[in-house]
């Protein structure tokens, strides 16, 4: 394996690594505003219809939501662990941790799929066949519109993350990363942790409200 060289515009790989991280944070900043728009819409409608939103959130499946949160938090831990191993040339251990995190991501999506299936059965998909037993079905359908859009977009991010982690896993297994060159592992890790962070916020907005009522 030839030693990685910095691209021509950089003094050394360290500077290139720092620039790559900064670039990833700029991208994540745009992602904050992307999900932020949805969260603003949710907040405005929840402020306007507090009772209907509490009733609607009670219809989400908190057991699946909680297990999925634990799964994503654990996968993030495995990725953070892999990021510390990559510079030490522990290629096999790095690859295994990234692979395990990707598998947990797949489990997350599978459980999300089960949840969607149960919600379709309950007629909670907003539209012509939406059925809600509560007092304000129209406001409840606003919540479920947010629910499906926000969790759907998040699931797309998880799917992209699984592909990214798998590619980095293969490269790590080949021994591509070293103490001098491991920026891709760090960058992929930042993306995966961000997807985890978004889920932590969505969990608090979707599953927790209205439980005590």
């Amino acid at each position: 394996m030839p030693e990685a060289q910095p691209a021509f515009q950089y003094v050394d790989l360290e500077q290139q690594h720092g620039t790559a991280q900064l670039g990833m944070w700029v991208f994540l900043g745009t992602e904050v505003l992307f999900f932020g728009g949805l969260i603003l819409a949710y907040s405005v409608y929840r402020y306007a219809h507090p009772e209907a939103f509490a009733e609607a959130t009670r219809h989400t499946r908190i057991a699946i939501g909680t297990i999925n949160t634990a799964i994503l938090l654990t996968s993030s831990f495995l990725v953070a662990w892999a990021v510390t191993l990559a510079p030490r040339r522990l290629a096999r251990a790095t690859a295994r941790l990234l692979g395990a995190a990707a598998v947990l991501g797949c489990v997350f999506l599978a459980l999300k799929g089960v949840e969607y299936w149960l919600e379709f059965q309950d007629h909670l998909w907003p539209g012509a066949h939406f059925v809600f037993p509560g007092s304000d079905a129209q406001a409840a359908s606003l919540f479920f519109a947010f629910y499906f859009v926000a969790t759907g977009l998040h699931a797309v991010h998880v799917a992209i993350g699984i592909v990214v982690l798998s590619v980095i896993e293969v490269k790590a297994r080949r021994g591509n990363y070293s103490e001098r060159y491991h920026a891709p592992v760090t960058i992929a890790g930042l993306y995966w942790h961000f997807v985890d962070l978004v889920w932590v916020v969505l969990f608090a907005l979707i599953y927790l409200p209205g439980r005590a009522g």
Partner: peptide, 29 residues
């Protein structure tokens, strides 16, 4: 998650400013 998993506690002030910028503008919105 940001401080430990994303290693922000080991990063420079500039990196933290970049990381916080999105949240800053979101708070204003």
């Amino acid at each position: 998650i940001a401080a430990t998993f994303m290693e922000l506690r080991e990063r420079s002030g500039m990196m933290i400013a970049f990381a916080g910028a999105g949240f800053f503008w979101l708070a204003i919105m």
